[in-house]
Design a protein around this nucleic acid. Sequence first.
DNA 1: ATATTAAAAGACCAAAAGGTCTTTTAATAT
DNA 2: ATATTAAAAGACCTTTTGGTCTTTTAATAT
Lengths: 149, 149
Amino acid sequence: MFNKETEYALRGLVYVQIQQLKGLKPGIIEIAKEIDAPLFYTGKIMQRLVKMGFLLSTKGKGGGFYFDLNKEDLPLKTVIQAIEGGKAYSGCGFGLNSCNEDQPCSLHEQYAPIRDAINKLVSLNSVQSLARDYNDGDDILLKREKTID
Amino acid sequence: MFNKETEYALRGLVYVQIQQLKGLKPGIIEIAKEIDAPLFYTGKIMQRLVKMGFLLSTKGKGGGFYFDLNKEDLPLKTVIQAIEGGKAYSGCGFGLNSCNEDQPCSLHEQYAPIRDAINKLVSLNSVQSLARDYNDGDDILLKREKTID
DNA sequence: ATATTAAAAGACCAAAAGGTCTTTTAATAT
DNA sequence: ATATTAAAAGACCTTTTGGTCTTTTAATAT
Ligand code: FES
Ligand code: FES
């Protein structure tokens, strides 16, 4: 669905928000462990997210990542677009030059509603809404135990 | 949506089928030009498809690519899976360990129907059905003229 | 036979994605 | 002030994806 960087970014952001709801400010080591992502890579990605302005951080003792409470909710789409670019889920399913209604490909009629649904999903869901959902009970959002076979 | 190799493969297969309906047997040079893909890369991909048993080819004069008429229609999904592997559109939208109903993530309820729709689309549409649709009139399946700006 | 044609095989290359690690900078606590 | 802590910066590496090109093999036509 998404590439690794986007996946780790979304999971990391949601994890930070979950902790923030508990009044905590997690660091890279904790985040990487909890979202089950490579430590240094997670660090790099979180730093990129800070530079992009999606969240804040402080260095030193007691430091970590946190959200500016004055900012509005961050839709998944905003993060996805910032990392993967606008082409994600905006183009033709068949790889033609940008999909449109006037010159639809054979798959357009079937694909367009799917693409619209994906767009809706990532627009309506935010880092904050997912974190709130998570807080409501289930503990399987970020890291799932591998089923024993 | 798909990676380049899958895109070129699908376009190439559909193009071969379209030509076959006209009694023709296109070669790499023609295919690459018509589907607007890199010549040598197209060649490599078409060869891989032959080796995978999706279509046939003959060398030498009058040679080219064609389908075994005795075989049944080739669903897009079969091609996609052969190239990109089974993980495509079978996993969790959030990157957890394989999506399932028992331990759904926060997005599962919204994502599952989308994933199912994609699966249905690539299962119900085949190289042959797309080629037949194409033959019905519109000429924009494989290569679209860039709109003048 | 042999010249021609076109796919098959495979070596090779470039860019992007994914990932690791060290050094530097900025907080905080003592 | 200085030791400690943790993010920032950035060099570096590996794998995958995407792509190019040459050589070989197998058809066909003369
Ligand atoms: S034109 Fe191909 S999906 Fe819209
Ligand atoms: S468990 Fe995440 S989409 Fe199904």
